Amino acid sequence: MTLPTPTRPWALHMRWLELCFMHWAVDAATLSERLPTGVELDTYQGRAYLGVVPFRMEGIRPRLAPSVPGLSAFPELNLRTYVKVNGVPGVWFFSLDAAQKVGVRLARTFFHLPYMDARMWMRRRATKGRGEVMEYASLRTHAGEAPARFAAAYRPVGEVFTARPGSLEDWLTARSVLYSADRRGQVFRGDIHHVPWPLQRAEADIRVNTMAEQIGMALKGEPHLLYSERLDVRAWLIVRT
């Protein structure tokens, strides 16, 4: 669902690179129980989805300011699902692991997002006859938070496409709102803006994945996979819902 771009000035620019959407269909009733009051689970044709999304961030900078070396580029790994608040669809993050301690604390403070410290490793490797593959590993190190590990290799296959409106691919990716909550349970909305996702089908070898254990769920079977090479994004400061 495409929403109007906010008229107030945006706050942050960033670039998402070498991203893989890995989605599993899960039990909707169980997943709904993990959401706070005021946040409603969204489903596609009656099915709920839980996503693990590895990627790399770069070019992070505030409006009218340059990027800061050492702070503006790092790997990130999300556990997310899809929700509605007051009828407006968006993304809910159960965790956002990142290899940037300052960024983790800024995001937790100013966006009320559950960013967490992690040791992370990512490289792009050429293969014989199969193009390039992204190799990715993450180990959560955040004090007081549930442990989580992830390791996978993934690559795009096929031509770049834009998701057809109404398709599962569109429903999973065309979301221009994120939601978060503070410690008192107040829900906030954050708007983002970007061009339609340039997507490709993907292949993945997922070797370790305990990301959903933090919410007491298991990810079973083969995931739905999509890849995107690059997306430039603008984000606005959060507001109360």
Rank of each mutant, 00 (worst) to 15 (best):
145 E>H: 05
216 G>D: 14
213 E>H: 15
199 L>E: 03
241 T>E: 09
40 E>R: 12
30 T>Q: 14
69 P>C: 12
102 V>W: 13
139 L>N: 08
200 Q>A: 15
47 R>Y: 02
229 E>Q: 12
50 L>C: 08
101 K>M: 07
192 I>M: 13
213 E>C: 06
155 R>W: 05
169 E>Q: 13
241 T>F: 01
73 A>K: 02
25 A>Q: 13
166 G>C: 07
27 D>E: 13
239 V>Q: 10
184 R>Q: 10
50 L>Q: 09
187 V>M: 04
41 L>V: 02
125 R>C: 01
192 I>T: 13
34 R>M: 14
73 A>T: 06
41 L>E: 04
103 G>W: 01
204 A>K: 04
164 R>Q: 15
89 P>F: 07
28 A>K: 06
56 R>F: 07
5 T>S: 15
137 A>W: 00
8 R>M: 04
139 L>T: 09
1 M>L: 09
10 W>L: 11
148 A>D: 11
199 L>A: 07
177 V>H: 12
212 A>Q: 11
143 A>M: 02
180 S>T: 05
144 G>I: 03
99 A>C: 06
57 M>L: 11
147 P>Y: 03
20 C>P: 00
27 D>A: 13
32 S>M: 02
198 P>L: 10
155 R>G: 01
40 E>D: 12
96 L>T: 03
200 Q>M: 08
107 A>K: 02
46 G>N: 06
96 L>H: 01
199 L>M: 11
153 A>S: 13
150 F>K: 06
223 P>L: 13
68 V>G: 06
90 G>T: 02
57 M>A: 12
63 R>C: 11
119 R>P: 01
7 T>L: 12
89 P>V: 08
164 R>H: 11
132 E>L: 02
179 Y>H: 04
208 V>R: 14
70 G>D: 08
225 L>K: 07
138 S>K: 01
229 E>G: 15
239 V>Y: 03
199 L>H: 01
98 A>E: 05
237 L>I: 01
100 Q>V: 06
9 P>I: 03
216 G>H: 14
53 V>H: 13
84 K>N: 10
31 L>G: 13
85 V>R: 11
119 R>D: 11
68 V>Y: 03
138 S>E: 04
88 V>R: 14
153 A>P: 00
180 S>D: 03
124 R>D: 01
227 Y>E: 05
47 R>P: 00
36 P>N: 12
176 S>A: 10
57 M>Q: 08
28 A>N: 07
51 G>W: 00
223 P>H: 14
141 T>M: 04
175 R>H: 05
8 R>T: 10
202 A>E: 04
141 T>P: 00
100 Q>A: 15
93 F>S: 03
128 K>L: 09
139 L>D: 07
44 Y>T: 07
41 L>C: 04
41 L>P: 00
121 W>K: 11
1 M>I: 00
66 P>L: 15
91 V>Q: 10
56 R>M: 02
217 M>Q: 13
57 M>I: 08
64 L>R: 13
